[in-house]
């Protein structure tokens, strides 16, 4: 199960990433990136960390990419000429094909060999809510707070830049 999840999530992640880079339309690329993030969530699930998997979907697929999509749509407007053609599904499918083959072959090969669980390499309590919050709010609390301040400064900067020309404080 773990092995299958690992290779399947990896295949989804890789093909989504390749398709995101290869697609010409920005909205298509954003959608493929969401697909890739779902694959990354699958990888976390393979690591017995449902908390991280759900957070991956909630934060990256559900919040960050929605904002990306919002901005892309706002700048680009409705569907453009080239985007209403039939979808070219062969590209991501082609990218996915070797990964699926590897997944099938590897899971068959690993079934015969002694199973190497992820438990042996993972620290105790990996990905549990308590452990993650301990890391964020105890071990790395300074860096965490610094990132928060950095983001706040960036937000204030974006607001200042976004104002109309005359209202900018330095003019």
């Amino acid at each position: 199960m773990e092995t299958f999840l690992f290779f399947f999530g990896g295949a989804v992640l890789l093909s989504g990433g390749i398709a995101a880079v290869a697609s010409r339309s920005a909205v298509n690329a954003a959608c493929w990136l969401v697909f890739a993030f779902l694959g990354a969530a699958g990888l976390f699930a393979a690591l017995h960390a449902p908390f991280l998997a759900v957070l991956q979907v909630l934060v990256y697929a559900g919040a960050v990419m929605v904002l990306f999509l919002f901005v892309i749509m706002m700048l680009e407007g409705p569907v453009m000429q080239g985007e209403s053609r039939r979808p070219r599904l062969w590209l991501p499918l082609l990218a996915m094909a070797p990964a699926v083959v590897i997944a099938v072959v590897a899971s068959r090969a690993l079934r015969t060999a002694a199973p190497v669980g992820f438990d042996t390499v993972l620290p105790d309590g990996f990905g549990q809510p308590l452990r993650v919050s301990w890391l964020l709010l105890q071990d790395y609390v300074f860096a965490f707070q610094m990132i928060a301040i950095l983001l706040l400064v960036a937000m204030v900067g974006a607001l200042a830049l976004g104002r109309s020309e005359r209202k900018r404080p330095w003019q």
């Binding site: 909205v27 759900v54 979907v57 559900g62």
Partner: peptide
């Protein structure tokens, strides 16, 4: 174990249906 976060995550994906459908 993370039931409530699962609901929030799935609900946040629902935005795509509406946004992409409209676009």
């Amino acid at each position: 174990k993370v039931g409530m976060l699962y609901i929030l995550a799935i609900a946040s994906l629902g935005t795509y249906g509406v946004a992409l459908g409209g676009w």
